[in-house]
Amino acid sequence: MSLLNSRISEYNRNAVLSATPSQLLTMLYDRLLLDLSRAQLAQREERWQAASTQLIHAQAIIAELQSSLNVDEWDGAQGLMALYVYLNTAMINANINRDQALTAECIQHLEPLRQAWVQAASAGQSSASQGWGVA
C-alpha cells in the first residue's frame, strides 16, 4: 500500500471514530448512494460483476441501518423499516435480473431520506452548539 493510500485510510478511520451518531448515519447514507450510483453506471456499461459488488455492499449498508433502527423509539420507525426491507429486496432483484430501473428506484427513494437526515443532523448540531442539545 502506498504512503498516500495509507494516509487516506488513516484519515477515513479517524473520521469514522470521531463522528457523532448523526454524522455516522449520514456517512452510511452517503456511501449507500455512492454504491448505488456506481452500480447504476456499471449496469449501463454491462459490467455485471462490478454492479453486483456495489449492490451487495449497498445491501450490507441497508442491513446495518435495519439492525440499528429501534422501532420502539418513534412512530415512523416501522415505516422506515418497511422501506429498508423493500429496498433490500429491490437491490437483490436489481442484481439477479440486471435491472437498471430497480437500481434507479432505490436511488430515488434514498436521496430524499439522506437529505432529511443531513438536515436533522445539522439542526441537532445547531441546537447543541446553542446549549439546547440533550447529552
Rank of each mutant, 00 (worst) to 15 (best):
L87S: 00
R114T: 02
A50L: 15
D99M: 09
I92Q: 05
D72V: 03
D75C: 06
W117H: 05
R47E: 11
I107P: 00
E111Y: 07
T53I: 13
P21L: 02
A123T: 03
A51F: 04
Q54V: 02
Y11E: 12
T26Q: 09
P112T: 01
R44L: 11
Q40T: 15
L33E: 10
Y84K: 05
D75K: 14
Q54N: 14
Y86L: 15
W48D: 09
Y11H: 13
L28E: 10
M27E: 05
A58H: 00
Q100R: 12
D35A: 10
Q59L: 01
P21A: 03
L28K: 05
S37T: 13
S68G: 13
I8T: 08
A82Y: 11
L102Q: 05
A19Y: 04
Q125V: 01
R7K: 14
M81S: 11
A104Q: 15
C106Y: 00
M91K: 00
A42H: 08
A63H: 13
S67D: 15
D75E: 15
L32A: 02
W117Q: 03
L102G: 00
R13T: 12
S68D: 14
Q66N: 08
A121G: 14
N95L: 03
Q66H: 12
E46N: 11
S22C: 08
P21W: 05
Q100F: 10
P21Y: 04
L24D: 00
I56T: 10
E105M: 08
R114L: 07
R114S: 10
I107L: 14
D30P: 07
E105A: 09
I107G: 00
M91A: 02
D75S: 14
L33D: 04
V118M: 04
A51H: 01
L17I: 09
N70T: 04
Q100H: 13
S67C: 13
A123G: 04
S52I: 01
D30L: 07
G124D: 11
S52P: 02
E73P: 04
A42D: 05
N95D: 12
M91I: 00
N95T: 02
R47L: 09
A50G: 13
L87H: 01
V85E: 15
V16Q: 14
Y11N: 13
G79N: 15
Y84W: 06
A60P: 00
R47A: 11
L24P: 00
N5V: 10
A94P: 01
A116G: 06
A77K: 10
G124Q: 12
R98G: 05
E111M: 10
Y84C: 06
E64A: 08
Y11S: 10
Q49I: 11
A104V: 09
T103M: 06
S18Y: 04
D35V: 03
S122D: 13
R7Y: 11
Y29S: 04
A15L: 13
S122G: 14
S67Y: 12
L55F: 03
D75A: 14
L80H: 04
Q43M: 13
L69W: 02
T103G: 11
M27Y: 09
A42L: 07
T103Q: 06
H57L: 13
